[in-house]
Nucleic acid binder design. Structure first.
Length: 458
DNA sequence: TCTGGGGTCCTAGGACCC
DNA sequence: TCTGGGGTCCTAGGACCC
């Protein structure tokens, strides 16, 4: 049975939607600062390093995704460009609200990233395009976040539809105006569909990045239609199984399942570039203590335990004149644990192994690896008992108690704000850190901090 | 002067085993 | 001089995504 390139033809294929907040971080900021509407706005990455979200007006100025901020700064004077430091607490909270609204429109939802989710309309009767228009309006009315929706029988087609919906809205003339905001590829006839495929560059397809895109174009595959018409087995031979799946999905054959209960993470990372170069081991230790603590919170949130801690430090590859050094090490733990103190202890042991004085460090990070469920790790530990850790005395808390302590620790920080309780080695909350981030343009945490609530005036 | 952070999956190649 | 073959596991690196 061959599905062929006609994505709309299979009546038994499911209909999936992809909902995506437009320029999400910028839109979140505009909700609380309406004066930013209509202006070119960018949101900057940690450290105010580069642009990670751009309003349509900023895109029109030619600012690229990931473009370094120092390259855009002249546009502040010239074009009234506004730059804001990323405020992830705000975006995360707005995301939760958006996902809750979207979820109410379909039986199943997969939250794919902070601003995107897939919906599965399996079993839902009626006009799905209209249903998605209603959802879109509700999200806009309740939250103030504009979004676009793409529908199709596979995730890859839904994502492509979403791209078309956004582009049709942003660039009049690129696609037919009826496709703007909500685009349902499954509702189109073959001719219409192929015309859309032909009008869309192959690089827009989900799963075709810069490398593979260039290779495809080299081989004369320049549009989505060219790719859809390729033979999947040939694609596998010349490229990979990954791209083969992409081609099949474009042909209307689902290969990527909807994942409404995502598996626990296999690795948990926390890393940062520093606001200024760091030279002292003591500052690196302080930074790594905090990174490890943050990663440990995420680890406990998924009821996991880590079997090893991977630590890395490096100088800046952009500073060509500086002597370069980068190193990393994986420190195995005697027993898998979620205890912050043990994880920090191992991370610092790793740091001592790889730290070399005399370099200007630009970035460091911690990755918790060999993750496993906490019960498994716990059972093993209790079975072995205190005899395993020869240096332990009976007055030391048992592993189970440490996990309880850490859980309480997390609850306090959740309620009173991150950093209310922390290990002494992390350097204190209010102290100016030698390794801290630059964040000169951060807006208030309007929805997640009592101290920063917006004030409404009569 | 100034260039993010956090993930996933796949593959190739080496180590090791019998 | 001559130097197997097949399997598994692990790791590093590449490609992608947002």
């Amino acid at each position: 049975m061959s599905a062929g390139p006609n994505a709309g033809a299979n009546p038994r294929a499911p209909t999936l939607a992809r909902v995506d907040g437009n320029n999400f971080y910028v839109s979140c900021e505009r909700v609380f600062r309406p004066s930013l509407v209509g202006r070119p706005v960018v949101v900057l990455s940690n450290n105010d390093g580069c642009a990670i979200a751009r309003s349509n007006e900023a895109k029109a100025l030619g600012i690229r995704m990931g473009q370094p901020w120092f390259q855009c700064q002249e546009m502040v004077q010239q074009h009234g460009l506004v730059a804001l430091s990323a405020n992830f607490a705000l975006y995360g909270d707005m995301s939760d609200r958006m996902m809750t609204v979207a979820e109410s429109f379909a039986p199943r939802q997969e939250v794919y990233s902070i601003d995107e989710s897939f919906l599965d309309f399996d079993g839902v009767q009626g006009d799905l395009t209209q249903r998605c228009r209603t959802m879109r309006e509700q999200i806009l009315a309740w939250l103030g976040i504009p979004c676009c929706v793409g529908l199709g029988p596979t995730k890859t087609l839904a994502k492509l539809a979403n791209h078309i919906a956004k582009t049709a809205e942003r660039k009049p003339g690129s696609y037919s105006p009826e496709l703007a905001q909500v685009c349902h590829l499954g509702a189109l006839g073959t001719n219409e569909l192929h015309a859309l495929f032909e009008a869309t560059a192959v690089g827009e397809v989900w799963g075709v990045g810069p490398r593979i895109g260039a290779k495809l174009i080299d081989g004369g595959i320049t549009t989505v239609l060219d790719l859809v018409r390729m033979d999947a087995a040939t694609v596998r031979r010349h490229f990979s199984v990954v791209l083969e799946k992409t081609v099949r999905e474009l042909q209307g054959v689902p290969c990527i399942e909807l994942d409404d209960e995502p598996a626990p993470k296999q690795q948990i990372m926390c890393s940062r570039s520093f606001g200024e170069a760091v030279t002292r081991g003591r500052d690196l230790a302080e930074a790594l203590t905090e990174f490890t603590s943050r990663a440990a919170v995420k680890l406990r949130a998924q009821q996991g335990a880590a079997g090893a801690v991977h630590v890395f430090i490096r100088t800046s590859p952009f500073r060509k004149d500086d002597p370069q050094y980068a190193n990393s090490v994986t420190v195995p733990l005697v027993q898998p644990t979620a205890d912050t103190a043990s994880l920090v202890h191992s991370a610092l042991r790793g740091l001592r192994q790889i730290y070399r004085p005399g370099f200007r460090y630009a970035k460091a990070g911690v990755m918790l690896v060999d993750l496993q469920p906490q019960e498994v790790a716990q059972a093993a530990f209790d079975f072995d008992g205190p005899a395993l850790g020869a240096s332990r005395t009976s007055s030391e808390p048992k592993a189970a108690d440490r996990v309880k302590l850490m859980t309480a620790f997390d609850a306090v920080n959740q309620r009173f704000g991150r950093g209310s309780l922390q290990l002494a080695g992390a350097g204190g909350v209010n102290k100016k850190k030698g390794w801290g981030m630059r964040q000169e343009r951060r807006t208030p945490c309007y929805t997640t901090s009592w101290a920063e609530l917006p004030i409404a005036r009569a």
